[in-house]
């Protein structure tokens, strides 16, 4: 057993005793009832289970939760899809996904939202050239598998959010 304390969507959880082999995915879904994070392949290949990990140095990345133990998240600060909306208002990316009909079954959506959110925050700090935008999005989202809409609408939605606020996300005047 391990004593687990962590911060999820700005709220402190724990300390709570968890079995060493309990996966982070089970902890979120079964212990906390946060079922927005999905369980897909169970082998970190599809990333439908990815959450955002906020590192103390100010950077963020996504992490699969299916093959990671809950204990390995001790002391960490994470965000899940439940934390993306603010005061009941969906994030720009969530709105864009809906506007574009980006998802159909929705199973991969939380993973794409988290990956896209990390990309937006990264570009806000380190903008890219307009000419590199498509390849930047493609590279960022490539770990995620979608079997309904063939990725096109997800990419278009992310690109729209970036182009709608290009002064924030893109290098000016190239």
């Amino acid at each position: 057993m391990t004593k687990l304390s962590l911060t999820i969507n700005g709220r402190a959880y724990g300390p709570v005793e968890v079995r060493d082999e309990l996966s982070m995915n089970d902890f979120l879904r079964e212990y906390l009832g946060m079922t927005g994070t999905k369980f897909g392949c169970g082998a970190a290949q599809c990333l439908s289970c990815a959450v955002i990990v906020d590192d103390p140095d100010g950077t963020s990345c996504t992490s699969p939760t299916c093959i990671a133990s809950a204990a390995s998240f001790d002391g960490k600060t994470i965000r899940t899809v439940e934390g993306l909306a603010r005061d009941g208002e969906l994030s720009e990316l969530q709105k864009a996904f809906i506007r574009h009909f980006a998802f159909q079954c929705g199973y991969c959506t939380a993973g794409f939202l988290n990956e896209g959110q990390v990309l937006l925050e990264r570009l806000a700090k380190a903008p890219v050239k307009r000419a590199d935008l498509e390849s930047t999005i493609a590279e960022a989202l490539d770990g995620h598998i979608c079997r309904c809409t063939g990725y096109v609408k997800y990419h278009e939605a992310v690109r729209d959010v970036i182009l709608a606020d290009s002064r924030r996300y893109l290098v000016a005047n190239q």
Binding site: F101, Q104, C146, R147
Partner: peptide, 12 residues
């Protein structure tokens, strides 16, 4: 929109 999504997914 859903039909186009299906068509893009079908291509994949």
């Amino acid at each position: 929109e859903v039909v186009m999504g299906q068509a893009q997914g079908g291509f994949a």
